[in-house]
Design a protein around this nucleic acid. Sequence first.
RNA 1: GCCGGGAUGGUGGAAUAGGUAGACACGCAAGACUUAAAAUCUUGUGACCUCACGGUCGUGCGGGUUCGAUUCCCGCUCCUGGUACCA
Length: 974
Amino acid sequence: MAEYTFREIEKKWQAYWEKNQTFLAKVNPDKPKFYTLDMFPYPSGAGLHVGHPLGYIASDIVARFKTLKGFNVLHPMGYDSFGLPAEQYAIQTGQHPAITTEQNIKRYTEQLKNIGFAFDWSKEVRTSNPDYYKWTQWIFMQLFNSYYDQDADKALSIDSLISRFEKEGNKNVKAVCDDETPTFTAEQWNAYSEKEKQEMLLKYRLTFLAETTVNWCAALGTVLSNDEVKDGFSERGGHPVERKKMMQWSMRITAYADRLLKGLEKVDWSEPIKEMQRNWIGKSIGAEVIFQVKDSNETIKVFTTRVDTIYGVTYLALAPESDLAASLITEDQRETAEAYIEVAKNRSERERMSDVKTISGAFTGSYAINPFNGEEIQIWVADYVLAGYGTGAVMAVPAHDERDYNFAKHFGLEIRQVIEGSMEEGSFPGKGGLIINSGFISNLYMKDAMTKAIEFLEEKGIGKGKIQYRMRDAIFTRQRYWGEPLPVYFKEGLPYLIEEKDLPLVLPEVDKYLPTEDGEPPLARAKDWNYKTADGEFPLERSTMPGWAGSSWYFFRYTDPKNESELADKGTTDYWGAVDLYIGGSEHATGHLLYSRFWTKFLYDIGVVSIDEPFQKMINQGMIQGRSNFVYRVFPRISASSGDSQPKLPQVFVTKSTRDKIIEGVISEEEVKEITSVVNDKFKKLNPGMEFNPMVGPVKLSEMHVDVNIVYNDQLNLEKFKAWRPDLADAEFILEDGKYICGSEVEKMSKSKYNVVNPDDIIERYGADTLRLYEMFLGPLEQFKPWNTNGIDGVFKFLRKLWNLYHTQAGEFQVSDAEPSKDEYKALHKAIKKMEEDMANFSFNTSVSSFMICVNELSSVKSNKRKILEPLAILVSPYAPHISEELWSLLGHETSITEATFPAFDESYLKESAFEYPVMINGKMRAKLNLDLSLSKEEIEKAALADETVQKWLDGKAPKKMIVVPGKIVNVVI
RNA sequence: GCCGGGAUGGUGGAAUAGGUAGACACGCAAGACUUAAAAUCUUGUGACCUCACGGUCGUGCGGGUUCGAUUCCCGCUCCUGGUACCA
């Protein structure tokens, strides 16, 4: 007697897959490849909850489906194992992060294996493994040894730059470099000292050391990137973040801004994600204009996207941080202006952001000259100007820019209109409008006016057309322990790379994971953290790499994870190419996904890989939210004269509907009496002999989270509840129909809300196949949805029904070799068709439904035909691989079902000769008419008109109009 | 503010080249089997009116296009994600 014993079946096949290396991916040029990838997890101490595997299940289904379709599939998994939580834990406990990380990984792997993923575990990578981060360091070295050549529009080696400098200086070199890089000749270059040369090269390298204003988080003792800061607080932990100047390594990602933007056109991602990246890159086309300061040698450079409005400029505004601003302050303005700068500078980013409405600024006392009309305009300091964007200075055109307008209004500055239109409702951008009052660009439209103005600027050498990006260079150092060390040492204060043969530069041991007393990063605690060269011993860099370093290239390492001589074999990465399907959360839209694209483009430039976009198709799965359950405790309002001892208060709980009645004030007096008497009786029992004033109405309640794992379909398991916490051991319940129904709410899944559901528990109760099916059945992959176990019985029942198709009522395996009926074929092929369509659209939930329909139909005719059940097992196998393998082997196969071929869809089984026409009267369905599909329009019309219901509605009159769509519908208009 | 995504029964959701709204599942109700429970099976289940036949309303709200609108257009409301003085 063989029941569906999922526990045995699942263990058996998981062991089989492991032993037979079923999912081992090998390069095979004879087969088309398919690379499907999940964003690898950070192995946290809490383990997996049901939300994590959602995307993995989806990609696993695709992987298994593609295998059945004859593709050579790579489906790897690994760990993003450097990170803050392990370090935080290490600080608290003194335990080495490597140890906790190892433990967490072990647990994650176990949990993942329980779900039956078709992962090729031999490809596993861990970013914190020296074998891995050796290559992260190696990539860093290549970046250090490269610069971005704008003529070639790619990264080139720094050596080639040096030889150009030696021959011709930097005058004709078009490269991405620091703003203040001076021009020099070959003679000057050759005369530079070694130190001067290195300093100059640092201005060109793709990773470089520079003083930058950073987001310093004192509580975490580290620098955070912009996307790790939310509203002035750290994303992790919510600690305050301040702006601070520090020497930091940066990555010149801005060099790739335009290619990162253009590359988006080539990839198949959702529009919102692409849009987020476009906004993040923030390309603006405009011009740089130089304003001369009156009676001074100083000039002010501004960036504007609207040179066409240059005749409308009535003042200039500088960022408070600007050094120039301070120097322009005149004696008579000194007091107010300096005070303003002091206040504005010290206002934290957070204050400035939350306080957008307040307009503030100060006049410096100096004037600038508008190069177009020679007009003198005031120079102001204003905190609406950001130091970090463009030149940190703006030319203000109050008539056509809202912020300038508000500022001018507030300080009574001139507002001069230069575009045709009405100023009644304040400023207007007037894009495309006719330019007026603007000298030689008057009577032109925006585009032409801009072209002409730029020509003028370039002719006079007082500006040029310019493209500005919002994106900043990415800071690449963290003052942290648990990250990749940078392969850099310092000689005379200048950075040099260690030799490649000394890679990996292994993370040293330290006594504590905290910064040193004088604020140095934890690596400063390491003994002998120096680099030995022929010239002596030099200190190594003490900062480590940020979290995104290791995750920016792991998809290449998966193809060849054990390679010791290169980051991956070129032939292998060429074979696997770009990731065909990447599944992960949309929260990585501007971090990981941008950095990965950047590094891929760089690796492409230096010839290490052959693709320049890593992720061809991406799907962003929606987060699974928690669904909390609540119980409602009656507030026992009893006063007792207890003497010394505290009275024991009764724990009495009422159900959701009683609570609702109490809240709405519609509870009956009898119910109140019942509740109070239960409370009073309980009190008496708990405190025998004690005198007390019994509780009377009205009833007050307090709400309490209850562990969702002891609630089933919102019904509380009373025994488990009593055992949950000692104080609840003699809880009393006022039930309805013998049940305690809890309240519920959707919240974030978190321990403190007792709503975390562990996949292990679901697997224990229903099996991994049920979990997989159910996660997919929950709804569209991309949608955010709460986890709710309420419907899980349905898919579990489905699997049992599926099992029963292959078994007699007595539980014996039995299939028939008889020829299936037309209906049986039809049921199967409907499901095949649907599955093919759904896989193309990544619509996993609807496939599960179609399996259910198919099995229901086959069950109702008690089908047990091999010709139906064999393909059915294959069809279901990507979703429910364990049961399918078992059925497949029962069907007599000796190899894994993964080696089967996906059943071919045959349209002819779905062909119908007749169709049940819905007959509508004025667009409302009134009758049904079963007609042959070969009938002509006229014949259908005739049949419809003859119908009794139609006759009734017509009531003897002729229809105004008849719409007949063969095979679809009949509509009679009356 | 700006840029995305969304709103369908008691619940999760299905259906878009415009063509039977509510597939599939949960829950609920009734019944069968059972000493009983569980499990399983059968039937019903959007709301309202009606004994019934049947009818009216119904896909966030208000309009429009159409023989016909969950689907297209215009105007709103609410929820949700991103972003935030980017010149």
